[in-house]
């Protein structure tokens, strides 16, 4: 007897195409927009800080003290770590809240991978938007600060020089690299913080997922 016959025509469920998953994730983020933005707030702040440090370093160029640079790196690293912990917490709660929805989806034929994929897509989309906004706000605020304080790019080390920052200088350090660095890092960290809660939720049997009352 063939495998097919023994299983009474039961075949393997096929995974959904990416565009369907993206549509799902989009709908979900859109509907829970306020909630998503609160979750993404941590990423926004972390990335805004990172972007401001990057642009201030770029403006200072070689004039920055090595000790100061190391201190800034440490602060940025720490703030991003805090932000990852914050998103993981928010995601754990959001996933728990949606246990019933996950159980229902699985009853309708969703594979575990699909559930994980939806959560990951939502996370990446949220992380991306928050990072773009964070980068923009962080960079602009730091540039504005530098203008107002008036420390020029090539102030000699250890001297106080009240000149103004030249527009042309700004073009020289215009941070295209920092943009992509910030956005990819922000989206990546959000995805990382979501992965474990999402996989946990996808792995529980549908019966258990449906039993939960939240």
């Amino acid at each position: 007897m063939s495998v097919e016959a023994r299983r009474g025509g039961v075949r393997k469920q096929v995974a959904l195409p990416w565009n369907k998953s993206i549509e799902f994730a989009y709908k979900s983020v859109k509907t829970r927009f306020g909630r998503s933005m609160v979750t993404a707030g941590g990423v926004f702040l972390g990335i805004a800080f990172l972007a401001s440090v990057l642009i201030s370093k770029a403006i200072a160029g070689s004039n920055i003290e090595p000790g100061e640079s190391a201190r800034l790196n440490w602060l940025v690293g720490l703030s991003l770590a805090v932000c990852v912990v914050g998103i993981t917490n928010a995601m754990l709660m959001s996933v728990t809240e949606r246990f019933r929805e996950i159980g229902t989806m699985k009853c309708l034929g969703a594979l575990d991978g699909f559930v994980v994929r939806i959560f990951m897509l939502e996370a990446v989309a949220m992380g991306f938007m928050a990072s773009v906004m964070g980068w923009t706000v962080g960079t602009l605020l730091m540039v504005l600060t530098k203008f107002l304080v008036g420390v020029p790019k090539n102030a000699p080390l250890g001297t106080v020089w009240y000149g103004s920052l030249d527009w042309l200088d700004l073009f020289g350090v215009w941070p295209v690299g920092s943009f992509w660095f910030c956005v990819i890092l922000g989206a990546g960290l959000t995805a990382l913080a979501t992965f474990i809660p999402a996989r946990q939720a996808a792995n529980i049997p549908p019966a258990a997922a449906l039993r939960t009352d939240v």
Partner: peptide, 14 residues
């Protein structure tokens, strides 16, 4: 005898 994917198929179609 069904694996996870076959169970999903069953839940979906049957």
């Amino acid at each position: 005898q069904l694996d996870a994917q076959e169970l999903a198929f069953l839940r979906c179609h049957t």
